[in-house]
Computed example of a mutant assay.
Amino acid sequence: MAIGFLLFTILALASSLAYASDPSPLQDFCVAVNDSKATVFVNGKICKDPKMVTADDFFFSGLNKAGNTSNPVGSKVTPVNVNQLAGLNTLGISLVRIDYAPYGLNPPHTHPRATEVLVVVQGTLYVGFVTSNPANQNMKNKLFTKILYPGDVFVFPEGLIHFQFNVGKTKAVAFAGLSSQNPGVITIANAVFGSNPPISSDVLTKAFQVNKNVIKHLQGQF
């Protein structure tokens, strides 16, 4: 299956999700102005003068290149959101490429502003997401998982913790569309154990019900 066709499919799927998150635009486009000194704050970015807009404002190149997975988790996410592609501003859509080394992991994380639809183009992934806390306190958060192969698609609902793990002995590649121009990402382990300043070890010890030395060890990893 051609990567170009898969990318088109992802974008089409993600565009149908756009109404779930970012507000609908009131103009044809609003190409973002990269101006860190701008004094006007908007929910998104300031619009470039339409008379100055060119085709390059809607163009990004490079998703054909593999990401560097030489890191502790063995994965690399290459985003194409409004920060990389100014023409996405107000359009409620973005894209990522994810590369996985053998047994590489895209760790448990959430996208606070977007639903994600993922398609595998190479390799075998074990993916899943966990539901939010149930109303009945006697019940546990439910885990939904699936093994994905090339051409398979899986959806991660907005805001829920999810992950992807390469269970194969060769590298894997996936692309994902997200229903926001800037979906955001919260990697759970980094946020909990690597915040600056760190969360009090007393808080984490009580939350995770473990010895304080375990918490200090985990904080030391981040």
Rank of each mutant, 00 (worst) to 15 (best):
A2G: 14
I3Q: 09
L6R: 06
I10C: 14
S15Q: 13
S15W: 10
L17A: 05
A20C: 10
D22Y: 12
L26F: 08
L26K: 15
D28K: 11
V31T: 01
V31D: 01
N34Q: 13
N34I: 11
V40A: 15
F41A: 15
N43E: 10
N43M: 13
D49E: 09
M52V: 10
D57F: 01
F58M: 09
F58V: 06
G62D: 07
N64W: 09
G67I: 05
T69G: 00
N71I: 09
V73W: 00
V73S: 04
V73Q: 10
S75H: 01
S75W: 02
K76N: 12
V77K: 15
P79W: 04
P79L: 12
N81I: 14
N83P: 03
A86E: 05
G87C: 08
N89V: 06
T90D: 08
L91M: 14
L91Q: 13
I93L: 11
S94L: 11
L95M: 13
V96G: 02
R97C: 08
R97Y: 00
Y100C: 07
Y100I: 01
A101I: 04
P102G: 10
Y103S: 08
P108K: 06
P108W: 03
T110M: 05
P112R: 11
T115R: 05
E116I: 10
Q122I: 03
Y126G: 04
G128Y: 07
G128T: 03
V130F: 05
N136C: 08
M139Y: 11
K140L: 10
Y149K: 15
Y149S: 14
D152F: 07
V153Q: 02
F156I: 14
F156Y: 15
L160H: 04
H162Y: 03
F163Q: 07
Q164L: 11
Q164P: 04
F165D: 00
N166V: 03
V167K: 04
K169N: 14
T170N: 12
F175W: 04
A176I: 06
G177T: 04
L178H: 03
S179V: 09
S180T: 11
N182R: 10
G184M: 11
G184E: 10
G184H: 11
I186H: 05
I186A: 10
T187Y: 06
A189K: 10
A189G: 14
V192W: 09
S195D: 13
S195W: 04
I199C: 05
S201L: 06
V203H: 03
V214Y: 10
I215M: 02
Q219P: 01
G220Y: 02
